[in-house]
Amino acid sequence: MITFSINGKEVQGQEGWTILEVARWHGIEIPTLCHHGALEPYGACRLCVVEVNDGKRSRVVISCMYPIRTGINVQTDTPRVLNVRRWIVQLLLDESPESPKIRELAQTLGVTPSRFQKKGVDFACHLCGLCVRVCQEVVGVQALSFSNRGLRKEISSPFHTASKECLGCGTCIYICPTGAMEQVFLRVHG
């Protein structure tokens, strides 16, 4: 057992657990987007940031991947953490103003659309990779993949053609937090 603290409260977890797992076990809320308990963590959305002090220095880390260590002091709502979270939600909301999950997050953090809000896109994909991972890790096929890099990065089927591997099970649509998968699915399933 590893003992450490979250927001001043002493907590315990097993070797190999992440901060997020222990926090959830103790009912401490940390927002997430690209995390799913059944899938390998991916660390892309950065919404789950927390501040960790190991006695030497204080760092902002992502709770969904950071392995717990004895004696660390975790804070889930410091000004630095809130600044990161607020900006991520702002950027996501401006990209994808109609997505229910993002709107809910925006509401809890008091974020409203800015003048940079994208027009004409309601459900932008955030490249959280849940669909790719669920397809591979749970369904067991590789009908989806990332392609391109940077601003042009997107979800597609390998080689951009209707995927022969796709079973049409729809698990990806179900897991997608933004609603973007419905469009992608049409292309992948063919």
Binding site: R46, L91, E95, L151
Partner: peptide, 18 residues
């Protein structure tokens, strides 16, 4: 740097663009 970002994480991909 925007051109070189791998695009995996949101602060870098969308934040730099903003």
């Amino acid at each position: 740097l925007i051109d070189e970002s791998c695009g995996k994480c949101i602060p870098c991909r969308l934040g730099l663009q903003r």
